[in-house]
Design a protein around this nucleic acid. Structure first.
Lengths: 194, 194, 194, 194
DNA sequence: TATGAATGAGATTTCATTCAT
DNA sequence: AATGAATGAAATCTCATTCAT
């Protein structure tokens, strides 16, 4: 069963949700069709199990976001959090990708994907409200930033970004910090010492 | 043929690339399977035609981005440009969504999708370089911001965002302006001069 | 489509409902699986179509039963009607057999089969009531006689009866006539002339 | 093993021979697939064992049919015998039903089912010959009456007959008596002497 | 040009049966 | 004796594509 889940991750990663064949999965897991249907009632069922695993890890990560604070300390902790987001995306990105795909036309998956995103957004919204940046709607800004995190990591995973991993995390942390605190709160704060 | 293309947009929007059936498209277009294959050699071919249309419009939009300038004037023109991006997404978002889906496991589509994104990123990269913000890698920042534009509009289109359209555009413009110029260059800067 | 229905009759006859394979039917009809599913959504659907045809013919036959009258004339017309019942059974017996089989565990078919039987029983009940035989419950007697008609023809079709067709019809008519009118009304009435 | 046989009766009753799954049987018997194949070599084998049990009881019942005699006494003993037939059908009807189904396309079962019916028919044939009714072919009449017994009980078991059990037995006995002896020999004859 | 019935390759799914424990 | 996870052959069903009209 673990083998089937693992094979699922790999096949969904390579072919996407729809193009993935049950046959591909069982071949990779070195089992039979019969065994597949012993544990899962169909492809969607296996995917749901995978998605639930991811969803759990995502929830944990979302809740670990601490308060946003200006200056280098805040930048540092934000950097650390985004870095963990990127780690998770590395591991489960293929599933998340397939998820996005499966969402279309499936309310079931739409809700699941939505839940995860909403969780991230909710936490970030609270942190933005606490930081009380001028002129920034906390909810929409949180959505925009979560969208940015997710999509840039997606691009990176898909090999469409020619950049080192830490450069990507740096940039995401910097844009976020600046969006919330303006230049004064971001890493370039030292400039104010000039 | 126009009817087939239009039906294609609708069906791909509703079901995604893989789940869309030729039968759905011809039924919606009120023609026959025979006619479909008269104009397109297969499902992929119709999709490519659709994608090319979108790509053209996207290219035109990308190139219309003017220099990034600090202060209210820059904010204003950025707002206007992002607004047009959102308009385009409203019209072609479904195709772009399906596109992303078809990309997985298809180098053909991967290249197409990549091209469009690269075009946007290239123009924005140049504009960021010209604005020369400290500590911001122009290429990665451009990618991050394009990712944010794309994904937030995607969420909005999918009905996952409870916000007015102009609020979304406002937020995207503000985050972008601040990312490039810091708080001093954003729209709220003038307020400090009051 | 006609070919599929005809092939269906033959395959259901040979193998019964459950053992019949869609593959058997399409091979016999010299078409493809695709064609089968173009006209019918599954095996049950084709069977339903067949059953509806039979049901219609049965209804017509049921309603053609005239009043039961004692003596040779009544015996004659009853004989004629049972003979037509046997003809119908010859033609559609295989479907009726499969029907009986499909009934088990399927309310759908149960109802259909029941309908046909009920129709026969209703008509015969009315005729028995009109003949007003002493001590015979018209409804139950009608059911018993219909059961006998059906089952004996079934046995005959299954090759379990070594008897000429007219001998079978004779016996059924005689038993029916006697059940309703006693010996006095049946074909042996002439005995009373002795 | 007894549990498997009992579970078999229930499952075959509910689903019929073909639709019954070994899994249904072992689940109901609260054992495992392994155990099933320890006692029976396959589904057919279990069914054959069940059928043999039924066949034995049927044989015993068939042989207990005494001579057919006219008048109330004959009517009485016939009534009693048919009543025992109905009892047996109550207990084993489901198996007999499944049997009939399995017969189609299976010579093995065909022979078994045929044997049971033939036994009944043979005994009844002898009794009819002894009663020597005019104009009635003993063999065919016996078949017709056995068909009636079987099928009406089947209908009753399937819940398609709205009648008390003794009304059904009454009617079957009456029709049989009249078929053999005419009205003069049936139970209502004595009434005319009053 | 336009049609749509027909196709069949390939996918999904079921379930009787086996076998290592 | 008993188990039940694993199997795979055989069934069902789908849908992109063709082709005679």
């Amino acid at each position: 069963m673990r083998q089937l889940l693992d094979a699922g991750v790999e096949v969904f990663a390579a072919k996407g949700y729809f193009a993935a064949r049950v046959d591909d999965i069982v071949k990779l897991a070195k089992t039979s069709h019969g065994t597949f249907y012993l544990y899962f009632s169909n492809k969607e069922d296996l995917f749901r199990a995978l998605a639930a695993e991811v969803s759990d890890e995502m929830q944990t990560l979302a809740e670990s976001l601490g308060p946003l604070v200006p200056g280098p300390a805040g930048q540092e902790s934000l950097h650390e959090w985004i870095s963990r987001f990127a780690d998770l995306y590395d591991r489960f990105g293929p599933v998340i990708r397939a998820w996005t795909e499966a969402e279309i036309g499936s309310h079931e998956f739409g809700r699941l994907g939505n839940d995860v995103m909403v969780r991230f957004t909710r936490v970030l919204t609270i942190r933005i409200e606490q930081a009380a940046p001028p002129d920034l709607d906390p909810t929409i800004a949180a959505l925009a930033l979560v969208a940015m995190f997710e999509r840039l990591n997606y691009y990176a995973l898909a090999g469409q970004v020619r950049a080192r991993r830490d450069e990507i995390v740096d940039t995401l942390a910097l844009v976020t910090q600046r969006a919330v605190f303006g230049a004064g709160g971001a890493a370039d704060a030292p400039r104010s010492l000039r």
